[in-house]
Amino acid sequence: MEAVRFEHVKYSYREDESEYAVNDVSLSVEEGEFVAILGRNGSGKSTLAKLINALLTPTSGKVSVFGLDTSDEKQTFAIRKSAGMVFQNPDNQAVASIVEDDVAFGPENIGVPREEIGKRIDFALNAVGMQDFRNAMPSRLSGGQKQRIAIAGVIAILPKIMILDESTAMLDPQGRREVMAVVKKLNREQGMTVILITHFMEEALQAERAIVMHRGEVVMDGTPEHIFSHSDALETYNLTLPRAAYICKKLQAAGMPIGEAFTAEELAEEICKSLQKG
């Protein structure tokens, strides 16, 4: 089933529409997909994300989530129930001073009965591996833990789509790993559709599909490997290669016969193969 559909969507933050943050974007995301959206700061990635769950509605064109039109205000609530979103700053998302109260916020909003909320908190905290922090204060947690709580707060609503708007940008490597592990697990084990907005190339490699945005437009769309093998195009869009791919390119330039590699593991394997061949 088609989870998200953009049809010639334009969005402008300005009254006079002199500049579009999202400019004529058409795309479709299937249920269960794991899509990474790449692009420099200001390329329109976050605007795109907010268009999905009706935090913004298109200036022109149409966005639909499971067939529901985001421009139709009567559908807003249903759309937000099925498309949850985690934001960038781990400090600006929690509403309560105790973890379980914060996770309860979403279910309370959609009118889940009390007994059921307790179960959903258990489920959501387990899903992000934070079951031991039920009574902790969010302000005392690390950035990665705070983001996992934010994800739990979304999971408790039981959405079908999880949008992460640069949710790892402010985290340290460990926090990033924690969050990515949770996101992958949700996608693999529960079939949740994941839309991950990031500028970490290494994270994009974990998705099945990557979309590159540049000046409000979708300029590349394909598997991460496909995208990173077009290093010249990436340069045009001001993106950098993953380090392993960069080294690979250098080795190729030095005349070494070596296949493509994007991670440390792949690079080691390719170097091994190449050295042993000779």
Binding site: R243, I247, K250, L251, A254, G255, M256, L275, K277, G278
Partner: peptide
């Protein structure tokens, strides 16, 4: 560093007589 790493690997490759 990435540059040094690439250099050392390609040096190793050249030393192996692959050039």
């Amino acid at each position: 560093t990435c540059d040094d790493f690439a250099e050392k690997v390609s040096a190793l490759w050249r030393k192996g007589g692959n050039h």
